[in-house]
């Protein structure tokens, strides 16, 4: 799927939104070749079923609304749907929940998404600095970032050599390269590609202020990675 990411940004701006909707963020990432889950936006149960059977099961459904920030809190997320029937019911369930819990929210539709397999959680983020321009952050998810602040920063453009250095800079970098307690080493090539591409996006799309890919599921060597959640803020 090749789409013009500028349409996404234009629409968000016209609608006065700073934050891209989840499927828009995925579309944007996808257009730059980042590994996002297979997804589609459904406006009816039938559409949801068609998209789901194209993607394959299991499936995740998420409400898409500019007015709903915490989707789970309003019952806007259903996980692990295994067949067409479950998808149809899931769609209706989400719509009912949202109608009840957030009656005034504007609904764009429901995101039908491939259920991303578990992997080692890593985080890639980027923001703009007044002096240096885009800055890209990389670290391992969970306590490594949240508690230990074990992250590495590079100024864009970020090259592969920079990513090598980032993995050396963070204390948890060895987990990726060497593995840990029976967990095999991770796909370093995949993470290099994601970090350098995030840097490319920030350089090519000045309208973006922040990117937060959290978490990214990073799999074993040669198995790639998948961006499980993408948050994009416009400036």
């Amino acid at each position: 799927m090749i789409m013009n990411f500028y349409d996404v940004i234009k629409r968000a701006k016209e609608e006065g939104r700073r934050k891209l909707l989840e499927h828009e963020a995925f579309e944007l990432m996808n257009s730059f070749g980042l590994p996002v889950p297979k997804f589609g936006l459904a406006r009816s149960p039938d559409e949801a079923v068609t998209i789901a059977s194209k993607i394959g099961f299991p499936i995740v459904l998420k409400i898409v609304s500019p007015d709903i920030i915490h989707k789970s809190d309003v019952g806007g997320v259903v996980l692990n749907l295994k067949d067409e029937d479950e998808v149809r019911k899931g769609f209706e369930q989400i719509m009912n929940n949202v109608k009840k819990n957030a009656p005034s929210a504007k609904i764009e539709g429901v995101l039908v998404q491939e259920m991303v397999p578990e992997g080692l959680e890593v985080i890639v983020g980027s923001t703009r600095d007044r002096i240096f321009g885009p800055v890209v952050m990389f670290g391992l998810g969970g306590i490594f970032v949240e508690i230990l602040k074990d992250v590495s920063l590079k100024i864009a453009p970020v090259t592969e050599v920079d990513v090598d250095d980032m993995m050396g800079e963070i204390k948890s970098g060895r987990i990726l390269v060497e593995g840990y307690r029976g967990m095999a080493p991770r796909d370093i090539k995949a993470i290099k590609e994601i970090v350098t591409k995030v840097s490319d996006i920030m350089i090519e799309v000045p309208e973006i202020k922040d990117i937060d890919l959290n978490p990214i599921m990073l799999y074993e060597e040669n198995r790639g990675a998948k961006v499980a959640d993408a948050r994009v803020l416009l400036g």
Binding site: G125, T127, I131, V135, E146, I155, D212, N214
Partner: peptide
């Protein structure tokens, strides 16, 4: 500032200089 920062808002100024210098 770095201590107050979190994912997305990244870290304080000094760490950016540190990164820029290293690069």
């Amino acid at each position: 500032r770095a201590a107050a920062s979190h994912t997305g808002s990244l870290a304080g100024n000094y760490s950016l200089y540190k990164s820029a210098f290293r690069q």
